[in-house]
Nucleic acid binder design. Structure first.
Lengths: 140, 140
DNA sequence: TCTTGATGTAATCATAATAGTTATAAGCAG
DNA sequence: CTGCTTATAACTATTATGATTACATCAAGA
């Protein structure tokens, strides 16, 4: 069924490519590596820019990373591109308030699911863009 | 942006209600507590049935739980209703194979994201339907 | 200053998942 | 047989996503 969007993988790709590349990273160049079109790349770069992760030279063009890549975690990127209202990963139905189960399932279950979400986020926090770059550099 | 579907919360609701209720749990009765219609309930019960968590008396009606509720974890329910092909939580774009980053980002990043997903699943495994039932019973 | 090439962003569009709903065939108890 | 229920298909509306086009804006260099 439905998974989370590929914005996270695209955003990590953008950051990795920008970190590794010596050439001027225009949206056109990045799009050719990501296999999509420049407008989509610019949209995602917009999210990264709002999060303070990158800066873009308007006019001339070119994306540059604004932090040490060992300090940009996957959670930073995830939060930049995958934000949900209330930060909740799971959706809830609205139970019937007249029924004890319906009235309370959200708070009880919600606390449990929040823990699961936090566990995932903590794991994302342990991995940085530098880890990804190193992983690719290690390849033959 | 997008969260995961509310099928998990509805499924947990169904199981909790069935576990706590002494009356015959027809899809009609459950739907009134969940605040939706019987057909949707039957659809989700279908997933739970396929996973061996419940049995349904066709004809007469009524859902019954097939395992001890202390042995049904949220992960069991999650897997029953939220299955994705390949079990991946995150989607990936398809990078350009001509580019070193594009060719390898999926395997490198995929391994990292798999860990995050596993951490979430491990947390879901720690919570059972009994915990939810107990939580609701504890309320005034 | 003007040209060139890039960004920022809005506007469409097609596709897919979700959830709501209706309808109907089939099952079982009394 | 009757009445109630489940199982399932079909259809609809809504929404997120991703692809794409278009255009105004911006900055550097000739």
């Amino acid at each position: 069924m439905k998974k989370l969007s590929s914005r996270l993988s695209i955003a990590v790709h953008i950051l990795t490519l920008t970190a590794m590349s010596s050439k001027n990273c225009t949206s056109e160049f990045i799009a050719s590596s990501v296999n999509t079109n420049p407008a989509l790349i610019r949209r995602i770069i917009g999210y990264l820019k709002n999060a303070g992760l990158v800066a873009v030279q308007a006019g001339t063009g070119g994306t540059s990373i604004q932090k040490d890549i060992s300090e940009i975690t996957l959670l930073d990127v995830y939060n930049a591109v995958e934000v949900t209202e209330g930060n909740g990963l799971f959706n809830f139905h609205k139970g019937n308030r007249q029924c004890k189960v319906g009235a309370n399932i959200e708070s009880i279950l919600g606390a449990a699911l929040k823990k699961a979400q936090t566990a995932m986020e903590n794991e994302l926090r342990r991995i940085t863009i530098k880890d990804i770059v190193d992983g690719i550099n290690k390849l033959p």
